[in-house]
Simulated assay, not measured.
Amino acid sequence: MTARTARHWVRTVRWYLRELTGEAEYDRYCERHRRRHPQAPVPTRREYDAMRTSYREAHPEGRCC
């Protein structure tokens, strides 16, 4: 395995894990928030998770439970 191939695999696994854990979603939210509301402070990860949970509970998407 070449160094280039190894770097590719590391980047791919890192991308997958960030998507799986939701870390990438928070990063995308922060970028969008900074663009749309440049003067407002960006919520912390904990605040973001609380907002996301509240929204999902208030707007269920056809879940059975």
Rank of each mutant, 00 (worst) to 15 (best):
R63G: 10
R45I: 06
R4E: 11
Y16A: 14
T2I: 04
S54I: 01
Q39W: 07
V10H: 15
H8E: 08
R32C: 02
Y29H: 11
R35G: 06
M1T: 09
A58V: 08
C64P: 08
E25L: 14
S54A: 15
A3K: 14
R46M: 10
P41A: 14
R52I: 01
R32E: 13
V10Q: 15
H8G: 11
Y55Q: 11
C65P: 06
T44L: 02
Y26F: 07
E57P: 01
Y16P: 00
E25H: 13
R63K: 10
R36K: 11
D27S: 12
R46H: 12
R11A: 15
R36V: 07
Y55T: 07
R56I: 00
R11I: 00
R36H: 05
V42I: 10
R11Y: 08
T44Q: 05
R36L: 13
E31D: 03
P41E: 13
C65S: 09
Y26H: 02
C64N: 10
M1Q: 13
H8L: 15
E25W: 03
C64F: 12
A6E: 09
E47I: 04
R56Q: 08
R63W: 10
R35C: 07
R46N: 09
A6P: 00
C65Q: 12
Y16H: 12
R36W: 06
L20S: 12
R32T: 10
L20Y: 09
H8K: 06
Q39Y: 03
A24C: 07
E61F: 00
R4V: 07
M1H: 09
Y29A: 05
E23A: 13
A3T: 11
S54D: 14
E57M: 07
A50Q: 06
E31F: 09
A50E: 04
T5W: 06
G22E: 01
T2Q: 06
A40P: 04
E19V: 09
R32A: 10
R63S: 07
Y29T: 03
T53W: 05
A58T: 08
Y26P: 00
W9N: 15
E47C: 04
A58H: 05
W15R: 15
V42R: 00
R11T: 04
E19Q: 12
T12H: 02
A6L: 10
H37T: 03
H59P: 02
T2D: 15
H8S: 11
A58W: 03
A50M: 04
A6Y: 05
G62D: 03
P41R: 12
T5M: 12
Y48C: 00
P38R: 09
R4W: 07
T5F: 03
P41L: 12
M51R: 14
E31W: 10
T21N: 08
G22F: 01
